Amino acid sequence: MTDPTVRVVLDSSAIVAFCRESIGVGEVIAEVADEEGCVVGLPVLCLAEAARVVTDQDRLALLVSHRAVEVLSPDPDSWQALAVTLDTVGRVDAATAVLAAIDLGCHVLSGQPGLYGGIAGGGPVIGI
């Protein structure tokens, strides 16, 4: 069995949007779920940040347990890249999301694409 392919990473704002019943985020997850062996990545630090503001904790739990979702943890060996990216974007959750997307060769889905503006070319970001 091979590891699933992460097609898109949701940052904190996209996770919050899903919990507030965003059709756009739901459609992206559904499209990825339709692809054999593909998942949506949720960086654990983005989940923690989103959980602070989400009122519908049941919907958040539904997202985390979805068959087409994988919770992502930062690689301890990438701490220096995380530090540099954190300096650029200003938030550790956003830094982990964009680093995950870069490492996995995919995009970040975000309700705050301007947050990543300091990254070359605005980073691999898709706005909601």
Rank of each mutant, 00 (worst) to 15 (best):
residue 1 M to K: 05
residue 1 M to P: 09
residue 3 D to M: 07
residue 5 T to F: 10
residue 5 T to Q: 14
residue 6 V to L: 06
residue 7 R to Y: 08
residue 10 L to Q: 08
residue 12 S to W: 08
residue 12 S to N: 13
residue 12 S to V: 05
residue 15 I to C: 01
residue 16 V to N: 00
residue 17 A to R: 09
residue 22 S to G: 03
residue 22 S to H: 11
residue 22 S to Q: 09
residue 23 I to V: 10
residue 23 I to T: 07
residue 23 I to M: 03
residue 25 V to L: 11
residue 25 V to I: 14
residue 26 G to S: 08
residue 27 E to F: 13
residue 29 I to E: 00
residue 29 I to N: 02
residue 31 E to A: 13
residue 33 A to H: 11
residue 33 A to L: 04
residue 34 D to L: 10
residue 35 E to C: 08
residue 36 E to W: 11
residue 37 G to K: 14
residue 38 C to L: 04
residue 38 C to M: 07
residue 39 V to P: 13
residue 41 G to V: 10
residue 42 L to I: 11
residue 43 P to W: 07
residue 44 V to H: 09
residue 48 A to K: 08
residue 52 R to N: 08
residue 52 R to S: 09
residue 53 V to N: 00
residue 54 V to S: 01
residue 55 T to K: 14
residue 56 D to W: 15
residue 57 Q to E: 11
residue 58 D to G: 02
residue 58 D to N: 12
residue 58 D to H: 14
residue 61 A to T: 11
residue 61 A to L: 12
residue 63 L to Y: 15
residue 67 R to L: 05
residue 67 R to H: 12
residue 68 A to V: 07
residue 69 V to W: 12
residue 69 V to F: 11
residue 69 V to G: 01
residue 72 L to V: 12
residue 74 P to N: 05
residue 76 P to A: 11
residue 77 D to G: 09
residue 77 D to N: 06
residue 78 S to N: 15
residue 79 W to T: 01
residue 79 W to R: 05
residue 79 W to A: 02
residue 80 Q to S: 12
residue 81 A to T: 11
residue 82 L to I: 11
residue 82 L to M: 10
residue 82 L to G: 01
residue 85 T to A: 04
residue 91 R to S: 13
residue 91 R to H: 13
residue 92 V to C: 09
residue 93 D to C: 09
residue 93 D to Q: 08
residue 94 A to N: 05
residue 96 T to W: 04
residue 96 T to L: 02
residue 97 A to W: 04
residue 97 A to Q: 03
residue 99 L to K: 04
residue 102 I to H: 06
residue 103 D to Q: 15
residue 103 D to V: 13
residue 103 D to T: 15
residue 103 D to S: 15
residue 104 L to H: 07
residue 105 G to F: 15
residue 105 G to R: 07
residue 107 H to P: 02
residue 107 H to R: 14
residue 108 V to D: 05
residue 108 V to P: 12
residue 109 L to H: 10
residue 109 L to E: 07
residue 111 G to V: 12
residue 111 G to D: 10
residue 112 Q to A: 05
residue 112 Q to T: 10
residue 113 P to W: 02
residue 113 P to A: 03
residue 114 G to I: 02
residue 116 Y to F: 15
residue 116 Y to R: 04
residue 116 Y to P: 09
residue 117 G to A: 15
residue 118 G to H: 03
residue 118 G to F: 02
residue 121 G to Y: 15
residue 121 G to D: 14
residue 123 G to N: 10
residue 123 G to L: 13
residue 123 G to A: 08
residue 124 P to G: 03
residue 124 P to W: 13
residue 124 P to S: 09
residue 125 V to N: 00
residue 126 I to S: 07
